[in-house]
Amino acid sequence: MAVQTLYEVHTLKGGSWAVDSTYPDRDGAIEVAKSLHGEKHFQAVKVVKDTYDPATGQGKEIVVFDTASKVGRDKPAPAADEAPSAAAPAAPLSPAPAARVRQKGKNTKSDYAMAVKVSVLLVLILVGGLGAIFLLHNAGGIFQKLF
Rank of each mutant, 00 (worst) to 15 (best):
T108A: 15
P95K: 12
G129K: 02
G38P: 02
V123P: 04
P24L: 10
V71P: 01
D25H: 09
T56Q: 04
D111H: 14
V101T: 14
G128T: 03
H37I: 02
P95E: 13
G105P: 06
A98T: 06
P78V: 01
A91Q: 08
A90D: 09
P76E: 06
D74V: 07
P97A: 08
D50H: 04
R26D: 14
A115T: 06
P89Q: 01
V48M: 01
Y23S: 09
Y7Q: 02
V32Q: 12
E39P: 01
L136H: 08
T22R: 15
V120G: 02
A44Q: 02
D53E: 04
I125L: 15
V3Y: 05
L135S: 09
D111W: 15
K70W: 07
V3E: 13
A77E: 15
S94P: 01
A44C: 04
S16E: 14
F42W: 11
R100W: 07
L36E: 03
A99Q: 13
R100T: 12
E82S: 09
V118C: 07
G28K: 05
A113C: 06
D81N: 13
S21G: 05
M1G: 14
S94W: 13
M114I: 10
K75N: 08
K70M: 08
L130S: 06
F147C: 03
V127L: 13
D53H: 00
P95G: 11
F147H: 08
I30R: 00
P95N: 11
E39H: 06
P24N: 06
K70P: 01
D81H: 15
D27K: 13
V47H: 00
A77C: 05
F134K: 05
V116C: 11
T67M: 07
L124M: 12
A87T: 14
V116G: 07
V47F: 02
V63G: 00
P84G: 06
F143M: 10
D66I: 00
E82F: 12
I125H: 10
S110Q: 15
K117P: 03
E39Y: 04
G14D: 06
T5H: 04
V71R: 14
P78D: 01
A77V: 09
M114Q: 15
I142M: 09
A79N: 13
E31L: 13
A86C: 08
V48S: 00
F42M: 01
Q103D: 15
T67C: 03
A87C: 07
T22L: 04
D74S: 11
P24F: 03
A18G: 08
S16V: 12
S21M: 02
A29R: 01
Q43G: 05
A132D: 07
Q58T: 09
P76T: 02
A80N: 07
G57M: 04
L135A: 11
A29T: 02
G105K: 15
F42S: 02
H10N: 12
L126N: 08
V47I: 01
T22C: 06
W17L: 04
A80W: 14
D66P: 02
G15H: 10
F65I: 00
G59Y: 04
D53I: 00
V127H: 05
V127E: 07
